[in-house]
């Protein structure tokens, strides 16, 4: 196992099989977030949150389309088995800890977003020798950088005064989503010979 993607080729590029697997995973989770945000936008009436969700939706769409273009894709039959597992994991699930089902779904969606944006550090997988302007490396750095900012809306919501009475339950949902995302991310990386340091 290596801490980083690679070994890189003579041009310093990450092997296409690793690119394909990582990009497929990221497109799966960010695509799921985009779908959840699209649905949430229909119901959200508060102007500030409407604006924030709209911004987030387009950030997630940017991540998906960026990876579509920046990845050196190769056929990966294992994805036929992996993708359904990932897609099932991202599905909105009202947490048992939260009595109000609608509120629970909103907390679960935010918790999933927080986990995806905070736990997954794709740029941290890049070895030092990857060229600065390699398209795949640029995409991973962009996704990680934007995740730090997109996450702020989820933090604001999950730590909001409205949810303070539910602090323990919210924390439990967030930790649960973190564990799930960490497990799937690490399993996916282990499948391509990578064990990240964080």
């Amino acid at each position: 196992m290596s801490r980083f993607l690679g070994p890189v080729d003579t041009m310093g590029c990450v092997p296409p099989r690793q690119q394909t697997r990582v990009a497929a995973f990221l497109m799966s989770c960010h695509g799921a977030l985009a779908r959840q945000l699209a649905v949430a936008l229909i119901w959200e009436r508060r102007p500030a949150w409407h604006m924030e969700l709209n911004t987030q939706l387009y950030r997630e769409a940017e991540t998906v389309t960026l990876l579509l273009r920046a990845t050196s894709w190769v056929p990966d039959p294992e994805l036929l088995f992996l993708l359904p597992t990932w897609e099932t994991a991202w599905q909105a699930t009202p947490p048992a800890e939260i009595g109000d089902r609608t509120q629970g779904l909103a907390i679960d969606a935010a918790a999933l977003g927080h986990a995806v944006h905070s736990m997954i550090r794709p740029a941290g997988l890049l070895p030092e020798q990857v060229p600065l302007h390699d398209p795949f490396a640029l995409a991973l750095r962009r996704i990680e950088f934007e995740s730090g900012r997109v996450m702020q809306a989820q933090i604001l919501f999950l730590k909001s005064t409205d949810l303070l009475p539910l602090r323990e339950q919210v924390t439990s949902v967030v930790e649960s989503r973190h564990r799930l995302v960490r497990k799937l991310w690490r399993e996916m990386l282990a499948g391509i010979g990578v064990e990240p340091c964080n």
């Binding site: 905070s118 941290g124 996450m151 964080n198």
Partner: peptide, 17 residues
């Protein structure tokens, strides 16, 4: 950049926050 890299790898934004 090399000096910063280990700290950057070790520290996560949300945890620092």
């Amino acid at each position: 950049d090399t000096i910063k890299r280990q700290g950057w790898l070790t520290n996560d934004v949300y945890a620092l926050q």
